[in-house]
Design a protein around this nucleic acid. Sequence first.
DNA 1: ACCGAGGTATCGG
DNA 2: CCGATACCTCGGT
Length: 106
Amino acid sequence: MNRVTPFQEKVYGALAGVPRGRVISYRGLARRLGCPGGARAVGRALRENPLAPHLPCHRVIGSDGRIGGFRGAVAGPEIARKRELLAAEGVKFDENGRLREPSRML
DNA sequence: ACCGAGGTATCGG
DNA sequence: CCGATACCTCGGT
C-alpha cells in the first residue's frame, strides 16, 4: 500500500523547493529536514516512488556528485534513465557517474 | 580501500 | 524487542 510517512512528507516539501535543472544531495536534503546524518533515512524514504511522478527523486544525488540510485537500483538501465532525465534538465554526468558541474547542487 | 556508526521504515522471528 | 535490509556519508585505520 502507498503509505506516506511524516518523514516522506518532509522530504517531499524540501524536494519541492528544488527548481528544475538543479539537484540536491541526500545529506543536504536530510539536513534540511533537521536530520543531519539521516542521508540513509532519506534514501530509505525515496527507495520507492510513492508519489511518482509527482516526486522527482531523480533530482536527488549523492553529496559527492554521485548519481546514486533510482527505483531501488544502484546501477543498470534505471540509472541510465536517471542520467537521461537529469541531462534533459541540463544536469549532465560523467562516464564515471559523477556530476560534471557540482555548482548545480544546492 | 575496508570497516563501523548513524537516522528512519518495513519485514521476519 | 532484535536483527537485517535499503537510492548514504563520515571518520578512523
